[in-house]
Design a protein around this nucleic acid. Structure first.
Lengths: 104, 104
DNA sequence: CAGAAATATATCAGATATGATATAAACAAC
DNA sequence: GTTGTTTATATCATATCTGATATATTTCTG
């Protein structure tokens, strides 16, 4: 993993800091991070053309700051919240499946 | 929703009990439940031909009881754990994407 | 530039998910 | 039917995720 990418992940709260910590990640955990980031990017792209973060938060019974975290790939956001958000912007399970299928 | 299906979900811990509670579910929440159940079914099918629950649990640094819950669609299991488990059985992001894309 | 609107960051108490453990039930093979 | 293997259920302390709130920063518009 390149330094710049690791730095970016660390800023978002991902525990991939040191090399040894990075090696502690199972392959599955690494893939899940990639999936989360892919969903996050897709959500941001779609939400921006559809509504404000506050509007989306209302639909979800969530809060604007949480949407911001979701769109920025924050580690505290679950795949479930990412999916609920994507669906609330009008994306479908098919769309979500396509995004995940393209990871790696 | 038919009675039999609602009963099955209730047994697994899903809060879809009464009609009014069911109506409280946002459409996105309902779809997410379907996605979880689809992932759960796929995991069970794949794991059964590949290894025991205990072996999978070891690969994941998890426990056999948690794998049992994952395979039986228990509400306490996150999408993230379902995905990590699927990946550990040898399934790929592409496989996972296909399962989700077929929901609904 | 000034004010408004949108987005980002920080903090936190409560809710949900977690692996561990114990143990029960189901299922084989003998 | 007894023994060994696998899967299911129950409980629990800890860790993680949650929406809410306050507030800072960026971006838009006039």
């Amino acid at each position: 993993m390149e330094d710049a990418k690791r730095k970016s992940l660390e800023d978002k709260g991902w525990k991939v800091g040191t090399v040894s910590e990075f090696l502690d990640l199972t392959p599955e955990e690494a893939v899940v991070i990639e999936i989360k980031l892919a969903l996050s990017r897709c959500l941001k792209e779609r939400r921006q053309v559809a509504m404000t973060q506050a509007e989306l938060a209302n639909k979800l019974h969530s809060s604007q700051p949480r949407i911001a975290k979701a769109e920025n790939g924050d580690a505290s956001v679950s795949i479930e919240l990412l999916m609920r958000a994507m669906l609330a912007t009008g994306l479908t399970p098919h769309d979500i499946g396509q995004v995940i299928a393209q990871v790696n």
